[in-house]
Nucleic acid binder design. Structure first.
Lengths: 128, 128
DNA sequence: ATATGTACCATACGTTGTAATGGTACAACA
DNA sequence: TGTTGTACCATTACAACGTATGGTACATAT
C-alpha cells in the first residue's frame, strides 16, 4: 500500500487515512477480502500514533468498508467498493439540516437552535 | 422586579434573563399589561450591556410574552401567562433531538453529528 | 512469546465560534 | 432635550471541542 499523510493538510490525519484507504479500494489497489496492515504496523509506517490509525479503522468498519476479525487482523469488506460511496456523514448532514430548517421556519433563532442542540447532545451523552 | 443574573451559570446571560422574566410572570410578580423597565434601565440595574437585554426582549416579544410599543416602552403581553408555557425552544428541542437520535441509531459519532450541525448552520447562515 | 483489536487512563495543542461587550446613530415621540 | 426600541459598526474573552499524542492493560488466538 502506498499511503501519504500530509501534516500540512487542514484535514485531520485520521480523515486523510480513511480517504486514502477508500481511494485505494476504488482504484483496485485493495481488493475485497485483502488483508490490511495491522494498526500498530501501519502506525509505524506512517509515523502516526496507533490511536489515530485505530480511529480510522473503527470508522471504516462502521461504514462496512473493512472488517476486523480480532486477533486475525483486518480485511477489506466484501462489499467495500459499494460502501465506499455512501457516507454516513451525508445522512447525518441531511437529517440535521432538515431539523434546522424546520426550526428556522418556526421562527427559532440560531442561538436557540444551538442551545437546544447542546442540550439534546448532553441529555444522553456518549463519548466517541 | 427582582432579577438575579449569575455570571457563573453556564447558561448565557440573555437566556437567564428570559427565564427570570417568564418566572416573574408565572409567579404573578409581573401581571399582563404591566410595564417593564426600559432596555437601558434594566441593563444598568443588572450591570449588563444594553445589547444583551435587547436580545432577551426581542426573543420574548417574538414569543408574545412581552410587547414593545416603540417609544412608549415595553409591556407584558395580555396573553403572556399562556405564552410563557408554550416555548418555541421546546419545539426546537424536540425536532433537533429527534434528528440526533436518528443519527445516533445510524451509528454516527458525536463528533460527526457536531460537525454536521456546524456545517448545516453555516450553510445558510443568519445572525441573531 | 508474539501479535491481533480494543479499552481505559490522561494531557497538550490549536481552532472554532459564540457570547458579551462597546460605541454610534436613527426615527418617533413626550 | 431626553427617552423609547432598533440597527449597524466593531472587538475581545472565553469556553467547548476535536485532534493527536502517550502509556498500560486485557482476552484471544497463533
Amino acid at each position: 500500500m502506498e499511503i501519504f499523510i500530509d501534516l500540512e493538510d487542514p484535514n485531520p490525519l485520521f480523515a486523510q487515512l480513511i480517504q486514502q484507504i477508500k481511494d485505494a479500494i476504488l482504484k483496485g489497489d485493495l481488493e475485497p477480502g485483502a488483508p490490511l496492515p495491522s494498526i500498530r504496523q501501519l502506525a509505524n509506517e506512517l509515523e502516526l500514533n496507533a490511536k489515530t490509525v485505530a480511529k480510522a479503522y473503527q470508522l471504516l468498519e462502521r461504514d462496512s468498508v473493512i472488517q476486523t476479525r480480532g486477533y486475525r487482523g483486518t480485511f477489506v469488506h466484501p462489499d467495500a467498493i459499494a460502501n465506499c460511496g455512501q457516507d454516513i456523514a451525508q445522512l447525518v448532514l441531511d437529517k440535521i439540516g432538515e431539523a434546522i430548517e424546520t426550526c428556522r421556519e418556526a421562527g427559532a433563532t440560531d442561538s436557540e437552535i444551538r442551545i437546544a442542540f447542546s442540550h439534546a447532545m448532553n441529555r444522553t451523552s456518549r463519548r466517541n
